Amino acid sequence: MAKQFDIQQHVTDSIIEAMEAGTPPWRQPWTGSKAGAAFPLRANGQAYRGINTLMLWLVAGKNGYASPYWLTFKQAKGAGGVVRRGEKSASVVYYNTLQKEDDVTGEEITVPYMRGYRVFNADQIDGLPDEYYRPTIIEARDLGTEANPELDAFFVSTGAQIETTEAPEAFYHPARDVIHMPPVNTFHGAGDYYATLAHETIHWTGHESRLGRLTKGRDREAYAREELVAEIGACMTCLTLGLTPDFGQSGAYVEGWLKALRDDKRWIFTAASAAQKAVDYIATNPICHREAA
């Protein structure tokens, strides 16, 4: 007999995984978003509520879905769409109650129950009407956070190409060899901005023309290792610059890979060593020396 799918365990495991990874999609130090943190919507435009909101946030953030709409296979077909072959569905929960007779008293009682069902994001479906593909854009807010000229000069001196646009995303793009940052005034604080920039700059050092950590076709463990390297390196960089790193978030990254650490006791040493090399690379970059001179 097939083992029954435990929706409660699935929900719990998914949330724990995201929290341990330290990167739940609703957690970011800047304002504005064009995916992930938007309230997920049913096919009819009604917003999901409660645990379903959290679950679909997790899936959207992990996969980069921009559309807020989620449809069952049947709903997608009814709207003229076709789920692309190989796409994986997300689990959501349906709550309701039923009336039954109490086994002891014989009285009619109300019993709550829930069942899981599967949905696909509109970004996984071809052929839907255009409105399903429009991302929900949460406008970034000007919080008045100001740049620090000395810290700006330091990061410019690394030689990294840093571009800033209104897009509410912070990332390093290996193919273009460019760091993208949202505007500093959309961050909750200057420390958050420079800690984020430090994290992306550590990724930048991993380019094949520098320290060569970023290999093509990385699996999940390789990706996790690089994130840990970037987070440790960002903490080191922040301390070097006189900033207070967010050890709470960094701790979450470390905690998220406890299994890998237990499986290989050298793993954390390797990551820390790679982080130190990245920090040293930045510090010994000829451009930095020219700036210092």
Rank of each mutant, 00 (worst) to 15 (best):
H188Q: 14
D103A: 15
T205N: 08
Y223T: 12
Y113S: 04
G32V: 05
R218W: 10
Y223H: 12
W30C: 06
G217W: 01
Q28T: 06
A90M: 09
D192W: 05
A224M: 11
A198W: 03
I268E: 01
Y281C: 12
T136V: 11
A230R: 02
G80V: 03
T145L: 02
G256I: 02
E150W: 07
A198G: 13
G78R: 08
F73R: 10
V104H: 04
N44Y: 03
D263M: 07
V11I: 15
G22K: 04
H289P: 00
Q75P: 05
K259C: 01
S89T: 13
E291H: 09
D130I: 08
A190P: 05
Y69P: 01
E226P: 04
A153G: 09
A60G: 07
A167T: 15
L211H: 13
I232K: 03
V92N: 02
Y94A: 13
I138D: 09
A293R: 11
L151H: 09
Y65W: 15
Y117P: 07
K88E: 15
P129Q: 09
A90E: 05
G78V: 00
W70V: 00
K259E: 12
E226H: 11
L41P: 04
E208Y: 09
S14C: 11
T240R: 13
T12N: 14
I51K: 09
G81K: 08
M19L: 15
W204V: 00
F247P: 03
L71W: 07
K277F: 00
P149K: 10
R141L: 14
D246F: 10
V178S: 08
F247S: 02
M181V: 03
F154T: 01
G106H: 00
A190R: 05
D263S: 08
Y133E: 13
R225H: 13
S33W: 11
P25S: 14
F187S: 05
I7N: 01
